[in-house]
């Protein structure tokens, strides 16, 4: 789901479809490393961490990196609403056209629409990812955000940090660190009961 979560570059985008695959891929045996309760708990902590920083809550904007970041950002916005009773604007950013591998790969994923409901200029932007891996998607997302204006700051929140950075990218808010081998795949998906879970395969 997250393009970074895959070992191959530029995974196919699925516009207009549910942002999360509904069943586990039958390939290698998948191990659940974070279930729905674990995800909620991790994001509750991330929400607290975001609010503990001395940032004006009304300056916050969450920008989900499509597709995987979308359900994570929605849950995060719910937690922020619960904890601080604030309605944080929520945008969606597709980074396909900013990727460094899309032309070289010869494949051309269909970008999904990007929607950012407020001006980012002067705001505290929190980019929301499901899985951070090489850091290349985060790099692309930062470039994209800057094309929408000049934010006061850009931070990165992710549900899972699986390591193996290829760029000097630091994640500010991590739900869970999951050590992985480079050739493994980390997926945020919905299980047969429709619940979000993170699996490693």
């Amino acid at each position: 789901m997250s393009r970074e979560a895959r070992s191959e570059p530029a995974a196919e985008a699925r516009p207009n479809s549910a942002s999360v695959p509904s069943s586990p891929s039958p390939a290698a045996a998948a191990r659940v490393v974070l279930d729905a309760t674990g995800i909620q708990r991790a994001l509750m902590r991330v929400a607290h961490e975001i609010l503990e920083r001395d940032v004006l809550p009304e300056k916050l904007v969450l920008i989900a990196v499509a597709q995987g970041g979308i359900p994570v950002a929605e849950l995060l916005a719910e937690r922020l609403r619960e904890i601080a009773e604030i309605e944080v604007p929520l945008g969606t950013l597709d980074v396909t056209l900013y990727r460094d591998d899309v032309i070289a790969s010869g494949r051309r994923p269909i970008p999904s629409p990007t929607r950012i409901p407020v001006s980012v200029t002067g705001r505290s932007v929190v980019l929301v990812e499901d899985v951070v891996f090489t850091g290349r998607t985060v790099r692309a997302a930062m470039d994209a955000v800057i094309d929408f204006g000049r934010p006061a700051e850009i931070r990165v929140a992710t549900l899972v940090d699986r390591g193996h950075r290829e760029l000097p990218i630091r994640v500010d808010f991590v739900g869970k660190n999951i050590p992985t081998a480079r050739n493994q795949t980390v997926l945020l998906q919905r299980n047969s009961a429709g619940q979000l879970e993170v699996v490693v395969q």
Binding site: Y98, V102, I103, D143, A144, D147, F148, G149
Partner: peptide, 8 residues
């Protein structure tokens, strides 16, 4: 967009 250009 404000910057009407992507680097693709």
């Amino acid at each position: 967009r404000e910057v009407k250009r992507v680097p693709t």
